[in-house]
Design a protein around this nucleic acid. Structure first.
Lengths: 327, 327
DNA sequence: TTGTAAGCGTTATCAT
DNA sequence: ATGATAACGCTTACAA
């Protein structure tokens, strides 16, 4: 910048102003400075800028996994909004571990991020304390948690799960199986289990442990689950797969076995991944506002950072049942 | 840090040393400093550190899309290696636009990233110039480009496409259709088309424009393509889908129409996404080293940054044909 | 082993 | 409208 200032015959302050608030500089000087910037091939140093101004334009995002394509639309949504506003995105994955999340929060705070997006809604006490001390805004996106750190943008996993279960009941199913990811340490899976149980109670169906399964993520898990529940001691007439791509794996297994869907067993999924609608038969599922969650999360974060809002924010973006031929 | 130093009764330099090279500080003082850090809830400011030392621990990654799950394993691989080495990852997507990539390169250089990973192998002249001036290492990962900016870690899209086409020929197919993403401005799609053409020539099959199609990404595109090529003026006996999830969409369409695969038409894909192996029938495809590309890219970048290597690097991680029931 | 001083490249603040 | 000066919080280089 010193170089640019010399070339343009002005002080570094003037160069700085041309970059940050061109209106404050006379047109003639601005021209000269711009030319000097061009000639010098000058790229401003935001590290120095942030250090001096005590404001950074970087947002940190921590997701349980970067590999899982479920997070992709959310990340894209965040990225989109940040980019439009001249902000940068730092990402990391914590593999669902609270301790790892804490370490990543520390690393991000050390980078002096201006805000955080956390997909998880469980955090270590140390992580909470650090974030509070740092005084930066935080958005949680994983589920509409009742006691957020700060702000939440999501949908209710409990309500979505409950709604789908009631929907299946309304369709006439009476032995509704439920398959989720392992619930230990996963607030989203827990909420979904809760919603399923609540719906059974409302519908007057007795809870049946042999109709509930927890499986690791992946297509083979879904395949295994459909067999266990449809051929089990209490054969399910429909199965609600509340996690990942389990429903896809299940339908493939039915195709391999020649089982009619929904004749032999109905199948419902939890997420609107594109493939569900293309399968034969297309699978009943929930439409979740994945991309919208990302966009809104970024927006309210920026609102807060730029002083356009204050106080707690809780945005429920809802969900929608998509009834298709599989149930 | 000043606060920590006061609490521990030492200079800030000593605190700095405890953090960066604890061996240089006596055990007793180290204890005291650590305690002070804890008590103060001190989180070091890496912005200041990087500014002062002129080294950052942030790597920038630019992909064409964050939404496309194809990049997920690569991103995860990079993230994994960086995390292990105490580095941070900044990501952004350029939507396949060179101009946007240039803007993002500028933004990353302004953040003084220590290195760059670019998926694209096409760049604007300005982007090339900036990167050269910045003097930071760069890895390109999209394809084994002949004239890399600096380092490349990938596989050859040309060779992979050629190998699969020859494989189909060896299986007895003679009217091999080829579907790719739009090749304009996409070096990967271009390379795949080239490989297909080269294979036809080697096999002594005449090139047939009516057997080649460019389609936008997405399942419906694959569905449309299979119909157009299998019912076209020159009906394909096999189709090689060299892009995205086109093959999946195609097979679903065949299921809907009751077409036997491979009886009516053989189907081959380009990427080892999990679902291909689970479909009915499972789809012949190429195994590509997606995650490995990410890991290696990060590793050679760190090697270069930490002075463990110099000079051009070109890593060909190869590919592998997975023959399955769809061909 | 520990400390002092200078400087990294900006911006905030106050002058002019 | 422009400039001078002092931070911002650390690390490098040198000294003790």
């Amino acid at each position: 910048m010193r170089d640019v200032a010399l070339r343009a015959g002005v002080s570094t302050m003037t160069v700085s102003r041309v970059l940050s608030d061109p209106g404050k500089v006379s047109a003639e000087v601005r021209q000269r400075v711009m030319a000097a910037i061009e000639a010098a091939g000058y790229v401003p140093n935001r590290l120095a800028g942030s250090l001096s101004s005590r404001h950074s334009r970087v947002i940190g995002l921590i997701v349980p996994s970067l590999e899982n394509s479920l997070f992709a639309p959310t990340i894209q949504g965040i990225s989109e909004v940040l980019r439009r506003n001249g902000y940068q995105l730092m990402v990391a994955d914590c593999g669902g571990s609270d301790a790892e999340e804490e370490a990543l929060v520390t690393a991000f705070l050390a980078q002096r991020v201006a805000g955080l997006v956390l997909h998880n809604t469980r955090h270590t006490a140390a992580a909470r304390a650090m974030i509070r001390r740092a005084g930066i805004p935080v958005v949680e996106t994983g589920t509409l948690t009742p006691k957020p750190l700060d702000m939440v943008v999501s949908y209710s996993n409990h309500e979505a799960s409950r709604a789908m279960t009631l929907h299946l009941h309304r369709l006439g199913y009476r032995r509704i199986g439920f398959v989720s990811l392992p619930a230990a340490g996963n607030n989203r899976a827990l909420a979904r289990q809760g919603g399923y149980r609540a719906a059974l109670a409302e519908a007057g169906l007795p809870p049946e442990p042999r109709l509930m399964l927890e499986m690791p993520p992946g297509l083979p898990s879904g395949a295994e689950a459909v067999v266990r529940l449809a051929e089990g001691p209490v054969p399910a007439d429909a199965i609600f797969f509340a996690g990942d791509v389990l429903a896809v794996g299940a339908l493939f297994e039915c195709q391999r076995r020649g089982w009619a869907v929904p004749g032999r067993v109905g199948i419902a999924a939890f997420d609107n991944i594109e493939i569900l609608g293309q399968m034969v038969p297309p699978i009943t599922t929930l439409r979740l506002p994945r991309a919208e969650i990302g966009r809104r999360a970024a927006e309210i974060l920026l609102d807060r950072i730029q002083g356009r809002s204050a106080g707690p924010v809780r945005v429920d973006l809802g969900f929608e049942i998509i009834q298709r031929a599989s149930t």
